[in-house]
């Protein structure tokens, strides 16, 4: 059964990364009704910042720090201050369009700067593998699982156990009620954007070694993020379950289905969710008419 173990590890590794991005997507949705269509590009971009930093001679760990810091600044702070705050005044549709356009800006910008070719990205923990029985498990995948799970557990603990985290959660669950309770909703929303930027940066560093750094990575990563978040029911637990489940399904499909049919999975999952469980796997059912 070595293949099973290998699939399990690979599925968990990609699934945990989808979960990171889906949690961030969900947080933005819940706190500010922002549908971030550029989320895939948010996962694509930080890896390129890391590569850029390495290109000017910084060592890998320092480059990673630069990548995370730049993400927090640009994809967290500036995204919220300049794009979201300014445009959400005009309504949800203009904001949705703006994030779609932003995704294209990031994609085209990276293509113009770094070129269309895919670049190798150093994996955390190197390229060695761990042999367990007959199964070869890439050390990088194991590290990715540990880091992502630790990040998710840490975020959960922060949101559940600290006063600040609870305020963010209250904002996410119902911004109107949170406002009445005296929670500074705008500040909590800003924190949510920073958390999202940190999560996407982490996801970027963990996933890029597998896919290679390419300007078009955001398309598939974004789609998987949306599917994980929507199938999960747009809540934090749902995003985790959705991400992990999708990681497994995706790796199974890669092993047993043709590329075309693997590519059909997001469509099939979304339509199935819409038809049979519109509120998502872990979502509460909605009032039929209001």
């Amino acid at each position: 059964m070595p293949e099973v173990l290998q699939l399990l590890v690979a599925g968990l590794a990609t699934g945990a990364v989808y979960a990171l991005a889906a949690i961030g997507f969900t947080l933005l949705w819940q706190t500010s009704q922002t549908i971030n269509f550029a989320q895939g590009e948010f996962v694509m971009l930080p890896a390129f910042i890391v590569l850029l930093a390495m290109n000017i001679g910084l060592p890998f760990p320092a480059a990673i720090l630069i990548g995370v810091a730049a993400s927090l600044l640009v994809l967290g702070f500036l995204f919220k201050q300049t794009v979201v705050d300014r445009i959400s005044r005009h309504g949800a549709l203009p904001l949705a369009i703006a994030t779609i356009a932003l995704g294209l800006v990031i994609k085209e910008g990276v293509k113009d700067v770094a070129g269309p070719a895919a670049l190798p990205f150093p994996p955390l923990g190197g390229t060695s593998s761990l042999a367990i029985g007959a199964a070869l498990l890439p050390v990088h995948s194991l590290i990715a699982i540990v880091v992502a799970v630790a990040a998710i557990a840490g975020l959960q603990a922060f949101l559940d156990r600290t006063p600040l985290g609870r305020s963010i959660q209250a904002t996410a669950q119902n911004p109107a009620v949170a406002r009445v309770l005296g929670i500074p909703v705008d500040r909590m929303t800003r924190y949510a954007f920073l958390i999202n930027a940190a999560l996407t940066a982490l996801a970027s560093i963990l996933v890029t070694p597998v896919y290679l750094a390419s300007f078009s990575n955001g398309e598939w990563l974004g789609l998987c993020t949306f599917v994980a978040a929507l199938a999960g029911g747009l809540n934090l637990r749902g995003a985790i379950v959705g991400g992990l489940a999708l990681g497994f399904i995706d790796n199974l499909a890669a092993a047993f289905l043709s590329a075309t049919w693997r590519g059909a999975l997001p469509l099939v999952i979304l339509i199935a969710v819409a038809l049979f469980r519109p509120q998502g796997l872990l979502g509460r059912s909605e009032e039929p008419a209001a």
Partner: peptide, 25 residues
């Protein structure tokens, strides 16, 4: 039809997934 059954805006995501699939075909 499925996209409009849910209250959430699902159409952008379903059409996005459809576009990806059709391109692969």
């Amino acid at each position: 039809y499925p996209a409009l059954r849910a209250r959430r805006p699902l159409l952008p995501f379903i059409t996005l997934a459809f576009g990806t699939f059709v391109f692969l075909v």
